[in-house]
Design a binder for these strands. Structure first.
Length: 466
RNA sequence: GCGCCCGUAGCUCAAUCGGAUAGAGCACCGGCCUUCUAAGCCGGCGGUUGUGGGUUCGAGUCCCGCCGGGCGCGCCA
């Protein structure tokens, strides 16, 4: 509806330029907005306020001229000038009828546009380490990231949903050691339990499956438990496969599908990490000190330099992260969006600094970050504490089973991503008007009922599960 | 101590690029069931936008200080 209004205004402005009311060369990025207040009509524009100065008149007088110059049309019932020089548009019933016809004709495509037509856009989200079941925080990431991807697609972008697996490195070692300890009959409170081991009960499940020789099938691989508690390598492979499959099942239950699962380990096997380091060294943004290789991130706005290669020869986590984001650029993502928990915001600066230090013409704001704040779970009026000691937390799967997929997704995108959020399980489950999900469902039921009473066939839009 | 995010009605939160009288839901108070679901509708009450300055025609929004909360600050990820 803004487009026809903009067209009318453009014509009016053209007339004013033609008759000399406005200088021939002025243009202003005026806005057409929905009004906040019904008394101000349906839409309003600030055009007169923005152009008054160059017309050498006051906003209200210019607004008068603009309104007088508007072409005749059937969309507008009334046009008023108000306040400091706003022009308020009141739509005619015919305008609404016309819009209804457009909705009906466009069906699912209604409201989409081509702003980002064909633009290759990578949206990375969740990216949980395969070291345990997904929790509510991952759920927020999944819901926010998936909505973002859908919105971008609705703008015509060519969206790729991407999940980055940290399947190499210390955390995975800790996982393997934990499963091994379980397989050897230890429990987390025993003296010999790995120092940074994972303590959750699921570790025992993984160990049992491994010892039974279960076969894990996922993403067209299959891994079979070797039953050998001494083979840390076999355990690692099995455990990662087991937990990746679990996470994939959680995500599927949540209605989120990824196009690319990108493995950190591939960055090593494809020599991308090496290549990245070589380029950074070649461009002179590194130095050696204390047996370690440092990246001069302070050249790019960081508050201190960061170690890239530790004195033991291994890389710190952000180096593959830079290599990963470089690969996004090399794979042709004109736009890359990385959705992260706010507790990782410290890594933003490093990754961006790394990309800039490569001197490959990657834009300064690449990638774009979307951060979400922490989620806490309330049940029975009390916060459900995450027990680090027991390794227990409320899993995404439990929440989906308990309150339903759509309700969980609804609540997780109901608030801005950058404010902390408390998920009240009892509220989400309640069948009362305090539960916004219930309220929305009721509205849907009423619409269906009205259509039924009217004898109108219920089409795709109203029977869609979405 | 430093960095990032947040602070708006009793509660949970909106407020588009800095624009009009800061809006919703819940809660509370009052009205409304012979016809589409009362799981509802209508009305009312409710605000020093944490606080003190600044910028300007105009600030919840931008800048500086302070107060309060969260997260981060490793040759961990």
């Amino acid at each position: 509806m803004k487009e026809p209004l903009r067209l009318l205004l453009d014509q009016a402005l053209e007339r004013l330029r033609a008759d000399g009311t406005l200088p021939a060369d002025v243009a202003a990025p005026f806005a057409i907005e929905r009004t906040k207040n019904r008394e101000h009509g349906d839409f309003a524009t600030n055009a007169a306020m923005l152009l008054a100065k160059s017309a050498r008149t006051n906003p209200r007088a210019l607004a008068q001229a603009l309104v007088a110059a508007l072409p005749q049309n059937s969309l507008l019932a009334k046009v008023e000038i108000a306040g400091p020089g706003f022009i308020n548009f009141f739509l005619s019933p015919a305008a609404y009828h016309e819009e209804m016809r457009r909705v009906h004709a466009a069906t699912q495509a209604y409201g989409t546009n081509r702003i980002a037509a064909g633009r290759r856009t990578g949206v990375e989200f969740v990216s949980a380490n395969p070291t345990g079941p997904l929790h509510i925080g991952h759920g927020r990431a999944a819901a926010v990231g998936d909505c973002l991807a859908r919105l971008l697609a609705a703008e015509g972008a060519q969206v790729v949903r991407e999940f980055y697996y940290n399947d190499a490195g210390v955390q995975i070692d800790n996982l393997a050691k934990s499963v091994q300890a379980r397989a050897k009959g230890m429990t987390p409170d025993d003296a010999g339990w790995p120092a940074d081991g994972y303590r959750g009960d699921y570790i025992g499940d993984v160990a049992n499956a491994y010892l039974r020789g279960d076969t894990i099938e996922f993403e067209d691989h299959a891994v079979t438990g070797a039953k050998d508690a001494d083979s840390l390598d076999a355990i690692r492979q099995f455990a990662v496969a087991y937990l990746r499959r679990e996470q994939n099942m959680d995500l599927e239950a949540f209605g989120v599908k990824f196009d690319v699962y990108f493995l950190e380990s591939s960055l090593y096997s494809d020599r991308k990490v090496e290549e990245t380091v070589r380029e950074l060294v070649a461009h002179g943004h590194t130095y050696e000190e204390g047996g370690a290789l440092w990246l001069r991130t302070t050249d790019f706005g960081d508050d201190k330099d960061r170690v890239m290669r530790k004195s033991d020869g291994t890389y710190t986590y952000f180096v593959p992260d830079v290599a990963y984001h470089l690969s996004k650029w090399q794979r042709g993502y004109a736009r890359a969006i990385t959705e992260l928990g706010a507790d990782h915001h410290g890594s933003l600066m490093r990754v961006k600094a790394g990309l800039q230090a490569l001197e490959m013409g990657i834009p300064k704001d690449y990638p774009e970050y979307v951060l979400h704040q922490m989620v806490t779970v309330m049940r029975g009026g009390e916060e459900v504490k995450i027990s680090k000691r027991a390794g227990s937390y409320v899993t995404l799967r439990e929440l989906i089973d308990e309150v339903g997929r759509d309700a969980v997704r609804f609540f997780l995108v109901y608030r801005k991503a950058d404010t902390e959020f408390t998920f009240d399980v009892d509220l989400a489950r309640s069948q009362t008007e305090e539960n916004p999900v219930y309220y929305v469902q009721y509205a849907h039921a009423r619409v269906c009922s009205v259509l039924k009473q009217a004898g109108v066939a219920i089409g795709d839009a109203s029977t869609s599960r979405r």
